[in-house]
Design a protein around this nucleic acid. Structure first.
Lengths: 345, 345
DNA sequence: TTGAAAGCGCTAACAG
DNA sequence: CTGTTAGCGCTTTCAA
């Protein structure tokens, strides 16, 4: 109905049209500022006519808050991350924040930090298992709130940043118990990125769980959270007659590749010949073709915790003790492991 | 080695420390500005000491370019989108741009436009099959370059925005030919979102391809690009004895759900009992458990085209004719359809 | 409640 | 090549 405006209107334009001061315009668009209903109306009217919206850059220049959260990711093939990304972005958007995306390859972390800092983001979420801890530290040094998603700082790091993760240790332990109770005897482990906190914790819990039952890891390989590598490991590990009778794979994403090698390359049946357990419970784990038994990392609670942590850091302006949130997860039993006991009748 | 700076240094600080003017600092950080090697060194030195980086907001306030691209997505479950997201973000990041993410639910498109506009993004990529055209139009009206990814404007829209898509029509046609040549006789179609341009084009091409061979769609259902709905359609469609002998599903994502229903709920064999073809060629289509025959939408070229289009719009400051890029794709034959002809011996 | 004035951190003329 | 000056669009004292 109205001709598209070629140029963006400024608060000055609106003020002029509404016959008020620039401050009045500003106040109208500042929740909780004191403006009379009358001026507010006039300003809104003028703003509508001009298609005016406050310029976020000008605003953040003076308020020193950009309402932007930097989100650093590395690889999105593991479906856990896109899912997390979507939920987090939704949640932050709901709170009036927006996500600025950074893809990292784990190299050039210095450069990346500089880029992030330029935008004066209000907070940073590091969601990449494989990201170096120095990146986190750099960001924290710049006095901006950092929360690690699905990982913690490497042991020995100054560790001044918050984190959210699921209970990887407990998860590993539960998987071990489940496998033992199902009667598996030659239990293998396929690791993710070896030095990542997720892998370290999962493997530790797994070993402990096995030890409880007087067992230990019968064979071990490293998949680095990569499908190709995991598949290769599976070929080697299950290629000989003296093969494991079950395997815990450190992520669902790798587990799918392993299962495909088992079934389609080696002709082994899952779970009859080999029991298989993953970790994450990504949507695909529920797809009937896989029906993967796995430990669930509860995305909803993890994202909520992340957003909450961020909010708290933002409000408390600096002095907030960093926190390490651990959200509980659960084992989801599907069809890739034998049931716990033989049918009772 | 140096104590973490609590507060961010400004160009003024750097100028003072380096004993130069503020402009000298600015020039040092502006590629292609004229600064003597000497001053440049001194500025860099001072900047390093202070941990200085130009403030992106202040910069964009005056340059009127934010080097931010708004990316609007709706649902990320369809793996085509996370993959696109990652590549696009990488590419833009490489060019010195960054992606600000917006998740849309197709409602409140007005509000969303306002939010986007606040950030004065340099360009917008709309990557959601199901997004309303009015959103696109609004953005275009604000005189900011918009490129539609994997879709075009609805017919009848003012259509002043560029787009990148694969050759959906040709894809549909190829699928039809392939199915006919493989000898299928009762060929079904499961649609995506009915009014989306992707679905319209794919279905049209499909119908034409069938017509060429004197065939027509034998049964039809609507899955709305959703797995649940697609599964439900499959149950109905293949539940009776008079069932189709093959089906073209408008996206891989739906096709996986359909295949699982076929195999695991209805006990039908693919491809022996039912031939199945998808669209997209997402990574999962290559997983051996699915080995889905599908039409590939070539992500690399599509993303390149999107970035190029954006670049061109940005450089040509306004007057650029809008362009509709169609990148060619190809049929990827896997194991969900019978081979073209029976074995020759 | 309102307006005038100052200034956030930066770049872009314009002289020199 | 360099510094001075003005001002991007906004919020925020401070007085009225």
């Amino acid at each position: 109905m109205i001709a598209p405006m070629k140029t963006t209107a400024t608060s000055t334009d609106v003020a002029r049209l509404a016959n008020v001061s620039q401050s009045a315009v500003s106040r109208t668009f500042t929740p909780g500022a004191s403006v009379s209903e009358q001026t507010r109306q006039r300003v809104m009217e003028a703003a509508r006519k001009l298609g005016y919206r406050p310029n976020a850059h000008a605003r953040s220049l003076i308020t020193k808050r950009s309402r932007i959260i930097g989100l650093v990711l590395s690889h999105l093939e593991n479906l856990f991350y896109p899912a997390a990304l979507e939920r987090l972005a939704r949640r932050l958007q709901h709170d009036g924040y927006h996500v600025l995306l950074f893809i990292s390859d784990n190299q050039n972390s210095d450069e990346l930090v500089q880029e992030i800092l330029q935008y004066h983001v209000d907070g940073i979420v590091l969601a990449a298992t494989t990201l170096s801890s120095v990146l986190a530290q750099r960001c924290a040094d710049a006095a901006i709130p950092v929360v690690l998603f699905n990982r913690v700082m490497a042991a020995g790091s100054p560790a001044t940043v918050s984190s959210v993760r699921s209970d990887n240790m407990a998860g590993g332990r539960l998987v071990a118990r489940h496998l033992c109770e199902a009667g598996y005897k030659r239990i293998a482990y396929i690791a993710g990125q070896e030095e990542s906190s997720t892998n370290l914790e999962r493997e530790r819990g797994f070993r402990e769980g096995l030890a409880e039952r007087g067992q230990r890891i019968w064979a071990r390989g490293v998949g680095n959270y990569d499908q190709q590598q995991a598949a290769e490991v599976a070929r080697q590990m299950f290629g000989s007659a003296e093969r494991p009778d079950s395997v815990f794979v450190a992520s669902d994403h790798m587990a799918f590749a392993v299962m495909d090698v088992l079934r389609h390359e080696l002709g082994l049946r899952v779970p009859q010949d080999v029991g298989l357990v993953g970790f994450d419970n990504v949507p695909q784990a529920a797809w009937p073709s896989y029906a993967l038994t796995t430990f669930e990392q509860p995305l909803g609670p993890m994202v909520e915790a992340t957003a909450d942590l961020l909010q708290r850091h933002l409000q408390e302006e600096g002095r907030t003790r960093c926190e390490n949130v651990v959200v509980p997860g659960q084992l989801v039993l599907r069809n890739t492991t034998r049931p716990r006991a033989p049918p009772a009748r």
